[in-house]
Each structure stands twice: as C-alpha cells, then as structure tokens.
Design a protein around this nucleic acid. Structure first.
Length: 507
DNA sequence: AAAAAAG
C-alpha cells in the first residue's frame, strides 16, 4: 500500500494524518493526489466512504504552501451545511501543523463569526452556495484570488437546483486556477457540463467498471412494505443486538419529523436532521449522533451525501429514494472505510417501479439483493430483530432497562465482531422466535419486492452463500423454516405523534 | 415532486 509520505505529501500534513491514525492512502487518494499536487484539473470519482475528501484536501493545502499572506486562496463548495462543517473539520485537521487558516461559510448561522474570520485573513473557505454568494455580494468575501477551487458532491452542485449559483461562483473566482470536482456519482452529461469550468481535466474513476457502483461491503435488504407497519419494524431494528449507529432516511421533512417524534415517544433517543429545523437543532442532532448519544438519526436527503460518521452499521430507507444516485449516496453512510454495513429499503406499493429503476441502474440482482433474501423470515435473521418481545416496542420510559440495554450494545457488538460470531443472545432469540409465531405475522406483508412477481409465500431456501459483508453472519446460522405467516393483518396505521394503542395490538 | 441553499 502506498503511504501519504510515498506520494510526496509534506511532512507536517503526513504527521497531522498520522496523529489520527491515517497512514495508508485509499485508491482514490493514491490515484488523484499525485496529479492534484502539481495542479492537474481532476474529476475524481470513487465509491462512497473511500476517502475523496483527502483526495482534494491534501493537494489544496499543500499547493497553498506556507505563504502567510492573508486572504482567500482556496474555495471548497459543498451542497449542505452539515457537509460544510465536516469538510471544514477535515481541512482544519490537515492544516493543524501549519498556519494556514480555514473558515466554514454557510447559512442558518450568525454572520458575525464568519465575517470576523474572513477579516482575520482566512485562506481556505469551505461553504455552501447561498451564504458564499451573499457574503460575496456584500463585499465581505473576495473570491478573486481563489486559485484552488473544489466542488465536492460535484454532480449535485451542477444539477438544476444549484447550477446558477455555481456558475456565479465560477465567475467570481480566479480565472487562472486549479479546479477539482469529486463525487461518487458522475453521470455523463454532468461530466460534459463540468468541463466548461475546467481546463483539460482528467477523469479518474477509482473503481473497477465490472464491480458496479455500490460498495461490496454493504449488504442490501429490500422489502416490500405494502401495509407494513414501518415504524414498528424500525423500532425493532433499533433494538437488535449488534447494531451500531443507524440512519433512517425519509422522502419528506414532515415524514422525518413524524418518525423522530414517534421514536422518541417510544423511549428511543432519536435525533432528526431536515430543512425545517433550525440550524442549531440540526447541528445538535448531528453532534449527538456522532458522539453516540443518540440511538438513531432520522434524516431527509440533506444527510444523504458525504456525511461521515464512524460505525454506522445500518441505513434504513423508510421511503425508497427517487433515483439510483440518491440510493447510492444514502446507503453510503454505512460501510465506510472498509467497514461492513447493512442497508434496508422499504418499498411502498406505489414505489415498486422506483426499485425496478434502482435495481437496473445499479446492476443489482446477481445475486444481491433480491434473490438472496427472498422470504420474510430472513428479515429476522439478517436484521437480528428481537423476536420474543410482545407489544409495542420501545414503550418504556427513558430510564427503563431497555435503555440501559441499548447503551450497552456497542461493546457487545465489538466483542461479537472480534469473535466473528454474534454469540448467545442470538441463539436465545432464535429459539423464542420459532416458538413464537406472532411476531412473524407482523411481517407477513413484508415480503420482499421481488417476490411480488411470484408469490408472497416464504421460500425456504434462500441462498445465503454470498455472505457479502454481513456483520451478523454468525457461525452455525441455520435456516428458518419459512412457513407462511398465519395471518395477514390489514390494519392501517394511523399516524400522528404519539401513535395509537392499535399499534400495540396483534404483535 | 422533494429537498437543498440567503434571510
């Protein structure tokens, strides 16, 4: 493996990285840093969680050199405020052994601090388009000497919603510059468009074209959610042993708010991030989630891209995303830096075509995800859902033992991972599960979407041979007998914070 | 069509 030192990265940067335990370069870094350092324009494409930030961050820092002259010389533009904070932190780390100063410029926050830092001579700016243009209009942000320009999540920055802002920003920065664009997804038309802002860019794809676009270490589970009580299933997933951090995505801000209220009502410590929240509340949620103080983060697609939180073991698509790009970015919140992850997608009746689209675009199907998990009992096995529990999950008050249990879980997960098995608890639950059919009935409607074509009846012989990257692939995993669930429930869940007593019935 | 991004 190539180290950062091998690539000619300055010693103080190498040292900053090493102090965080980062020594070896990931492929995208290995391929782009040697080009970025001498000033080659780059379109860098690599899967989620494989280190794109340092791919551009290191060349930016190193190329600014040690010039103490104040003023903005580098600009990094990102699509969300949370990503601005995160990339700012990475850049701040890379510059920790030199005097180069970094500032984050984004909306929803007081102007004062940001303006002060600009006046103090900040040299690297990381920001979102709106506030960047705002401050530029106010003549408080001079971009004309920005000779290093980066678009992170570049395809997003160049889509219709952002393009006018980006065009404006490219008019303001230095016309003699080094430009780098990075993203996990780079549709052809976007690449063509991107070239307008670059000079002779080289397009680096740090992926084997035969491999597909998704991370091999993410296991994809897809379930048809027709009349499935998704809140209940999600509550159960959250109580599964071996679960680390979990992110749940919804399609709308309202759905996110509703779900976070519901889960908090049930005694979970859930946080939300969506555009109807104050920036302060958004950042509180993110910080709490990163620190492990929250059980789960409920988010709209504002958090789909770039957000890097350690040890996210599960991503749940409460609502299927609209397109394959969003799917790929959402599930990319797990399986980062070579770790394994599980992505669970609920496909509502009206959204079956969306799954077909995503499945085709991402070239799934062989053998994952549909064929491998072709019966609902495997939902229990793969998600390790506690099966014996009666009643509505998570109803306990905040100080209850349920909570203690959840807090204790990460250590157990680590132990289990170290042993390569998920040990006793699983077996116990499994035994109860076979004795206790009622839980199965909860998921009777949760047949996977592929079975829609044939038959919702459980199939006994799903091929588990792919093994993929499951953290929960315990030794001696036996098949469930896959009986068809006894009763189909047709209850319609009435939403609203606080839920209904009916939610407890029949479980 | 939703979400995001200035206030």
């Amino acid at each position: 493996m190539t180290t950062f030192a091998d690539m000619g990265v300055d010693a103080d940067i190498v040292e900053a990285l090493a102090s965080k335990g980062i020594v070896d370069a990931f492929p995208i870094q290995e391929q782009t840093i040697p080009l970025g350092l001498p000033g080659q324009d780059i379109i860098g494409q690599a899967k989620t969680g494989t280190g794109k930030t340092f791919g551009f961050g290191i060349p930016v820092v190193q190329r600014l050199g040690l010039d103490p002259a104040p003023g903005v010389k580098a600009l990094i533009v990102v699509p969300t405020r949370e990503l601005a904070v995160q990339v700012y932190e990475d850049m701040d780390m890379l510059t920790s052994n030199r005097s180069t100063s970094v500032v984050a410029i984004y909306g929803g926050k007081a102007y004062e601090g940001q303006i002060d830092q600009l006046k103090a001579g900040a040299q690297i700016v990381v920001g979102t388009p709106g506030r960047l243009i705002d401050l530029n209009n106010q003549r408080l942000l001079d971009l004309s000497h920005a000779t290093e320009v980066v678009l992170d999540e570049a395809d997003k920055m160049l889509d219709l919603g952002f393009l006018p802002d980006i065009e404006k920003i490219f008019q303001k920065v230095s016309q003699v510059r080094h430009t780098m664009l990075y993203s996990a997804t780079m549709p052809g038309p976007i690449v063509a468009l991107a070239r307008r802002f670059m000079s002779n860019p080289i397009h680096i794809r740090a992926t084997d074209p035969d491999e597909g676009l998704t991370q091999a270490n993410i296991k994809h589970l897809v379930y048809r959610a027709h009349s499935l009580d998704k809140d209940e299933v999600i509550a159960r997933i959250l109580q599964a042993e071996g679960r680390g951090k979990t992110v749940v995505f919804t399609r709308t801000k309202r759905a996110a708010q509703k779900l976070v209220d519901e889960l908090n009502d049930r005694g979970f410590n859930a946080g939300a991030v969506h555009g109807d929240m104050s920036q302060e509340a958004r950042e509180r949620s993110m910080a709490g989630f990163k620190a492990g103080k929250k059980d789960v983060l409920i988010a709209t697609d504002v958090a789909a891209r770039g957000i890097d939180v350690d040890d996210v073991t599960h991503v749940i698509n409460h609502t299927i995303p609209d397109d394959e790009k969003t799917y790929l970015h959402r599930v990319g919140r797990t399986g980062r830096a070579g770790k394994t992850g599980i992505a669970v997608t609920f496909v509502d009746w009206d959204d079956l075509h969306k799954w077909a689209l995503i499945n085709r675009a991402l070239d799934f199907g062989q053998p994952e995800p549909m064929e491998t998990y072709s019966s609902s009992p495997h939902l229990f096995e793969d998600l390790d859902i506690p099966a014996g529990t009666k009643g509505r999950i998570g109803k306990a008050p905040k100080t209850d033992t349920v909570r203690t249990q959840r807090t204790a879980r990460p250590e157990r997960a680590a132990d289990a991972a170290a042993e390569g098995t998920d040990e006793g608890g699983t077996r116990r639950r499994r035994r109860r599960r076979s004795a206790d059919t009622p839980v199965g009935s909860t998921f009777a409607e949760g047949a996977p979407a592929d079975a829609a074509a044939s038959d919702a009846t459980a199939s006994a012989d799903a091929d588990r041979g792919t093994d993929g990257a499951g953290t929960h692939d315990g030794a001696g995993k036996e098949h469930h007998d896959g009986k068809p669930a006894p009763a189909r429930r047709r209850r319609r869940r009435r939403g609203g914070p606080g839920g209904t007593p009916a939610a407890a019935a029949g479980v």
